[in-house]
Structures are given as C-alpha cells and as structure tokens.
Write a protein that binds this DNA or RNA. Structure first.
Lengths: 339, 339
DNA sequence: TAGCGTAGAGTTATCGATAACATTTCAAGC
DNA sequence: GCTTGAAATGTTATCGATAACTCTACGCTA
C-alpha cells in the first residue's frame, strides 16, 4: 500500500509537504504542489484515514442505529440522515439492531471502539438507558430518533404519537365505529406508550368501551409466527369492528391474519395504522394511516447532531422536536357492518 | 478518553501487559490479569479500534454498497450479508449509491481510505468498471452482487435473469397475451440486459410481435417524474395487453400511471415484474413476480468474500453463482380483455 | 550451588498521518 | 553586499495500539 512517505520520496520532498498538499494547508510553491500531485496520481495514492483519525482524534464518520432496516420508515429516515451528513462533509454508517437490546449493545460497543464522531439512535426502548449512558460517559454526542428514553438528557426528534392515536380513534368514530381494538408495540417504547395513551384518551372522550382485552401489546418487529395475533382476536368477547395497528409492520401482520380468515377489509372490519408504507403505499394506496415525516426525522436529527458536534453553542439546553402527525385517508375504513 | 496507558499506570503494569490481557495472548498471571480487568472496568476502558487497525493493517470491517436502500430487494440482501458477517466476527457497514456512478465513486474513495477488509458491491452498471479496477489495484477483495461487469474478473452472485424473462413471457402467453411490452432498466446493467434478452427470445419462440416501441429503457431507480412512462404508453401504436417491469420499482411506477388513467389491473391490462416486494407482497399479495432469493444473495456473497479474505485457497479461480428465479403467481394477470 | 529453562513481565520500534516548532531560501531595501 | 522578514520546506514528537525482542526472578536439576 502506498503511503505518504512513498510519495514524499518519489517527489523529493518531506512527508509534511505532501500532507500540506493533500490538506491544502500552509504555503506551498506551485511547482512543488504540481509535482507532488503528479506523483500522487501516478502511484494511485489514497490517504490512510485510519492514521489520520488517530492523530486528529476525529473520524468524520457518523453512525445511524435503527431498529429495522426492512421497515420503510427507517430506510426513508436513513436517506434524510445521509443527505444531511454528506452535505456537511461527513460520512454515515448504518447499523440495524433488530429491536434487540443485545444487538443494540453490540453496536454501541462497535461505535465506542470505532470512535465515530456522533450517533443517531432509534433506541430499542426504555431499557436502552444504560447504552445511552455509555455513550454519554465516553463523550460521544448522540441524538435520539422516534423514541424517547426517560432518564437521559439529550436532543430528540419525535412524532406526535399521542395526537396520532387520538386522530385515528376520531376518524374511526366518525365512521360509526364503537368497538375499536388496538395492537401495539411494547410499552417500554415511548412512542408505543403515547400512541396507546392517545387511543385511550380518545376512547374515553367519545365514551367508547375499551377493556383490557381490546389491547394487545407485542413487539414492533417482524415475526414469523402470527399465532399471538390469532389468539388475541379470538380472545375478545365481542369482536371489534375496527383495529388500530401501532405501526406498519403490525398492520401487515394483522392484514395477513384477516385474509387467512377470509375477513375482508374494510367491508367486514376496518384497519388503520401508524407509519406509512413508503413507496408501497403508492402501489396500492389502500391503508389509511397516520404518516410520519420519516425523511425529516433523519434530516433534522442529523442537523441537531452536527450542531452538537461542531458546538456552535456549547452546552445549549437539550432540544426536543415534535413533528406533526398527518392522517392520510385511503380505503381501509368503512362504516361498520350492520349487525 | 481512557487509553491503554491509563489502564497500565493505574494497574501498575506496562501497556503491553494490558494489551495481552485484552487480546488473551502471551502469559499473564491470574493475579495480574484480574487486577488489569478490574481497572479496565473501573475506568470504562474501550480499546481504540483506530490505533489497532493502524498497526494490525486490518479493520475487520466489511462494506456493502447497494444501489437503493429503499428497495426491499437490497435491504433483505443486506440482512443476509450482515448475518454472515457478524457470524464470522466482522462488522458490516452500508453505503447507498442511488444508482449513481458519481455517488458510487465517492463511496469507493471512502472505502479505500477507510481501509476496509473487503467489499460487497451491487455495481451501478457496466461503467462501474474503473471503480472496480481501483479496488483491485489497491488489493481490496470484492464480490459483485446481482450485476456482472464485463472486463473484470471476480466472484459474483447473480440471479437467473434470462430464465426469469422467459418465464414471465411464457406465463403471460399461457394466459393468451400476444401484445406484451417491457419496461426495463438501462442496458448497461447486466441483469437488465439479460432480462430483456430472455423476454426477446421467448417472444420470438412463441411467435409474438415485438417492435422497438414495445420496449422502454429507463433507470431502475425511483423517479419523481412519471411522464417518461406516460409518453411510452402513448407512443405504442397498438397498446399492449400485458406489461413486464424489469424490477419492482418500475412496477410500482407503471401501476401508479395506470391507476391515474383509470386502467385496472388485471382486468384491462396484466402486469408482472422482477423482484418481490419484501414484506409488502404479503400485505396485499397482488402482483405476480419473478422472485429472487434476496437474503441468499447477501449471505452467499458474504461467504465468498470471507473466503477470499481469509484465502483458504489462494488465487482460486473466480466463482460465479447463479441463483434460480422463482415465478410467484398472484392476481395481477388475467386473460386479455376481448377486443 | 552453579546452571539453565521458563513464566511473567517490560522496552523499543512501528503503523501512517499531522501539529508544532525549526530551518532554509530568497527577494527587497538600504 | 548585507540585513531582514516572509515564504517554503524540513524535523521531531505524537496519536493508541501491537510485534518482536529483552529482561528478571524463581525453581528445578545435576
């Protein structure tokens, strides 16, 4: 591998001169600069970023840790983050925790040892706290995306989950639904908690019945086994006329179970969810959703992270951005079937 | 930031002894080992991977460069690659070239300067050749995924694109279609070329008409402007009764145009494509596709890459794996409407 | 008890770059 | 021709780890 010394030797200058040419610093005569550049081209020289990071104490690499790389919400978010990062001369690496605390922990370790300059995290849930404290202890700036974690102070970009929950209930109530059930992610995840809270408040406000059996708490991630969902549907004494899914993955899974049972949406049951389906919503614009501005989550989060890294205002108070929830009405809601 | 010297000082040993404890090499008394470990815990020490990489001349980091992070084909592939990498103690970083040669070139530069141990590339197309030659010149092992590039020798994992093209035509022909059009990615991409070739051969075999206007060559990536597709549909003298899309993104876009025009699928026109829609195919199992084993592309490609890196067989001949194409019949194909 | 082998440590050089300081070069001014 | 100061370039130390070598102390053997 060609090093800066090889270039220096061949160009008949010192390594420092080559370094100055590379970084455009200090004073170099045009003649020397040209000669060094020519030699670099000739030998296909590429500076060793590892060596550079070691002395500069910064990598200009940022990390985005998401919980589900196959979920379009996160890939769209990733695009936003990437765009903001490259626009500022940083590179972005991705990691995928799969909603697992263990994998998340591994990635945190990787992040610490790689000495990245900053991290964007969609945490697996409240128990992610120790992971975040680790980042804090090691002075690595980070911004939370989509989910808050109680107990840690930091910048965070959230969606208006509670409001989203309310709106979905209202939308269904307007169509005459009274038996509205909800399937949701774990309550150890702040967004799931707020979605549920919004749902509960709106149900109460509209004087709709809502027993504990109407709510099913499971994981946001993709599962191979849908029997939990089946059991839940069977357990409700009076079947619901509408279901709210806490995210897009859960909606897919509920849909799959309903189809298997020959229950048609929206004729026999209405179905709505949080999070849009990315490009696929376009394909068959079927399901009514609370859409989140996924791209903006990434873009804004990245901007906040870069501000912390470049510390325009040292130790500014933590910021919390809440992006609005938008109801997109499509074709998955109808009047409840007459009894 | 805590360094190995801080640990050494506090534990009253040399840095080398700490290094030996970290890496479990050499001989260390149990007493010393315990003391060093305790100090490392106390100070939350994490070894600096940058420094380590510099001296070891290896990073244990691999890179996956894909062309569309929002395409489920690639995210599923990414999962496979990640699983194979972590299983072997390597970490995997992702990059997204967006089907752009320029972005691809930037990533190649990043890869070279980061000194990763190996690369999995889905190239933007045949003009990616110089980028791959750069990797070769710098002795970075790489494996191509999904697309070949003429002019470079390397391991590659492909889908059986030609066979897929044939099968789609046959499937449509069996349903009585004679006017079958195709929208496809750029012919500078090997998989697009083969898909087209399969289509052409099958059309000829079945004695079906196929003029130049029936084929529309565009980009595989997502576009905001669908007017090209509109113009193509308008330009065909006799409208087709079926359309084959060269990948899932193109199918989405064609679908979008058709819906806008009030043309229903499959009643008025049949639509099939290459590549499945990931989890979304489950949601509304609508479109008939040639599915590729996306996960296996990643998993197998990664295994081949690791073999090259660990050089079990130095300079073994290049391997070319062709994964079978599977026709999944759903509901987007019907008999052509009677004239 | 001298000699020797080895477990358990330490020393020094190195990876490839850059910061900080040091030195050389050369043109302008008197 | 000599001084002076800025421009141009070089030298040395450093970042945090590891490889390769060296050293020390102790126990066993003859």
């Amino acid at each position: 591998m060609v090093t800066i010394y090889d270039i220096a030797a061949k160009a008949g200058v010192s390594a420092m001169t080559v370094s100055r040419v590379i970084n455009n610093t200090g004073k170099i005569s045009d003649k020397t600069r040209a000669k060094v550049k020519r030699v670099m081209e000739e030998l296909n020289y590429v500076p060793n970023q590892t060596a550079r990071s070691l002395v500069l104490q910064q990598t200009r690499i940022l990390f985005l840790l998401i919980t589900d790389i196959t979920n379009p919400f996160y890939t769209t978010l990733a695009r936003g983050a990437e765009d903001a990062a490259t626009k500022n001369g940083f590179r972005l690496l991705f990691g995928n925790s799969d909603e697992s605390l263990d994998k998340e922990s591994d990635y945190i370790q990787t992040i610490l040892s790689t000495r990245v300059d900053g991290v964007l995290v969609a945490p697996a849930g409240d128990p992610s706290l120790p992971h975040l404290e680790k980042l804090r202890r090691h002075n690595i700036p980070f911004v939370l995306l989509d989910r808050e974690v109680p107990g840690i102070g930091c910048d965070v970009v959230l969606g208006d989950s509670k409001e989203g929950g309310r709106r979905l209930v209202e939308h269904l109530a307007e169509h005459g639904h009274r038996r509205i059930a909800m399937i949701n992610g774990s309550s150890s995840i702040s967004s799931a908690r707020l979605r549920l809270q919004g749902y509960r408040e709106a149900m109460k406000l509209h004087d709709l019945p809502c027993g504990e059996l109407d709510i099913y708490e499971t994981s946001f991630g993709l599962r191979s086994d849908l029997s939990g969902i089946e059991a839940w549907l069977d357990a409700m004494p009076e079947p619901p006329t509408a279901i709210i899914a806490g995210n897009n993955v859960l909606a897919l899974e509920v849909m799959s179970v309903l189809r298997k049972r020959g229950i048609s949406v929206p004729e026999q049951i209405s179905l709505v969810c949080f999070d849009d389906l990315g490009p696929y919503a376009d394909f068959d614009p079927f399901i009514t959703v609370i859409a989140q501005q996924a791209y903006h989550f990434g873009y804004i989060g990245m901007q906040m992270l870069l501000e912390r890294i470049q510390e325009r205002e040292p130790s500014a108070p933590w910021k919390k951005i809440v992006l609005p929830a938008e109801l997109i009405v499509r074709r998955s809601v109808a009047e409840p079937p007459s009894p």
